[in-house]
């Protein structure tokens, strides 16, 4: 059983907002609803960092815990989804979410008048039949059932935004971290983001040697 996760590599994100655009286009989202956005820390200062944020499909999701109508559910892949037919638009999930993921199409308004909550579905649709018209209108496209991954991650030009099975993408990120070597204030720029291929090979060989040694013990 897979466990779906997003992972944003701050060293690689160039704040192009390609992920935001890909998401909006893929699901034909209305004005005012951004399931994904790019946040930049120390904007304009050398060494600024950007990360792409959306619903992180938490293992212990606070939105699920606070929902008064219990409209959230988790798929077998660990994706947190919700049933819009049960949502009353109270906004509790918005206050509970540490990432600001829940979106309300009617904007800030009086209690219960925000409309149905909308959020990232990890491109997995909703409770309706896969790839049906109803599912698309309520939740957007269901790419997972088509054997694909979320559009935002697939679209990312620098592959800063990773999406997929947690062990696989964490392994990809670990390789990148090894290639970068020591972190710190000086660790910034192209070589840090992408490393040198020779360094990566050395690291991989070193790791293989270590594993062999451990295996012999």
């Amino acid at each position: 059983m897979a466990r779906m996760k997003f992972l944003s590599d701050a060293e690689r994100c160039i704040e192009c907002n390609g992920c935001v655009t890909a998401c909006k286009n893929e699901h034909e989202l209305p004005w005012g609803v951004n399931r994904r956005r790019v946040v930049t820390i120390n904007d304009g200062v050398p060494g600024e960092k950007s990360i792409s944020v959306s619903c992180m499909h938490c293992s212990d999701a606070p939105c699920m815990a606070v929902c008064p109508t219990n409209c959230f559910y988790k798929t077998e892949d660990g994706v947190v989804l919700h049933n819009k037919d049960a949502c009353i638009g109270c906004g509790y999930c918005l206050f509970a979410c540490p990432f600001g993921a829940p979106q309300f199409p009617s904007g800030p308004a009086a209690f219960g008048a925000r409309g149905k909550m909308d959020k990232c579905t990890f491109c997995s649709g909703g409770p309706e039949e896969n790839n049906s018209k109803e599912e698309f209108e309520k939740y957007g496209r269901n790419r997972i059932s088509e054997g694909k991954l979320p559009a935002c991650a697939e679209m990312c030009a620098t592959k800063a935004l990773l999406a997929g099975d947690a062990p696989v993408i964490s392994d990809i990120f670990r390789d990148r971290a090894l290639r970068r070597g020591k972190a710190g204030d000086a660790a910034w720029g192209w070589t840090t983001a992408y490393g040198k291929p020779e360094q990566a090979q050395e690291r991989t060989q070193e790791r293989a040697r270590e594993q062999n040694r451990e295996g012999q013990k």
């Binding site: 798929t75 892949d77 989804l81 049906s132 109803e134 694909k148 997929g164 099975d165």
Partner: peptide, 22 residues
Amino acid sequence: PVVVSAEEKSGSYEQTAHVSNY
């Protein structure tokens, strides 16, 4: 609209050629 419960619903993640390529 046909509402299928989360348990019944198929079409979960698979590591297809498309995903492996990603």
